[in-house]
């Protein structure tokens, strides 16, 4: 673990001003930001742990808890909002039993909302494991869930 952190910090010449990008890379490497890893970042960079923690909790991009195998991000930008994204969001929360920002206990799914992906022509957009799914409807969401192996409670047979 320590080597990995050292390597990432070295990538930025141990420059304290790159704390945020460093944490982003660290999160990418470890899936989330575990406590001991944050301590290592603080030591390597010479930034107090309280500052590291402050930054991690201020910015939306960071997660202090493990993230799921499948990442589902629903765009809630204005264009998606006026095209009905909130209805999709409620459906997602209902089906997954998760609120936005939560991960399922079996670590299968993390569901979050984002503020605009800038692909407004395709709104509402759901990003499933990095892949953009445009013009989402509730029916399309159900199909996606089935593909991911999630049971959906509808009468739909096919």
């Amino acid at each position: 673990m320590k080597e990995k952190v050292q390597e990432i910090v070295a990538r930025y010449d141990r420059d304290k001003s790159f704390l945020i990008p460093i944490l982003q890379d660290v999160q990418k490497a470890f899936n989330y930001l575990p406590q001991d890893v944050l301590k290592a970042v603080s030591e390597e960079l010479g930034v107090s742990i309280s500052q590291v923690f402050e930054v991690c909790t201020f910015y939306k991009a960071f997660s202090l808890t493990p993230r799921g195998k499948h990442q589902l991000s629903l765009c809630l930008g204005t264009a998606c909002h006026v095209r009905g994204a909130p209805l999709i969001g409620e459906h997602m929360e209902r089906t997954l039993g998760l609120k936005a920002g939560e991960t399922s206990p079996d670590l299968e799914y993390t569901y979050e909302t984002v503020n605009c992906l800038g692909a407004c022509a395709l709104g509402p957009i759901l990003v499933v494991d990095g892949e953009y799914q445009g013009n989402m409807t509730i029916a399309k969401t159900n199909k996606l869930f089935k593909k991911l192996g999630k049971k959906v409670e509808t009468d739909e047979e096919d």
């Binding site: 945020i20 930054v55 991009a61």
Partner: peptide
């Protein structure tokens, strides 16, 4: 380049 952390 400095990447933001997702704060408006």
């Amino acid at each position: 380049i400095n990447r933001g952390g997702g704060a408006f």
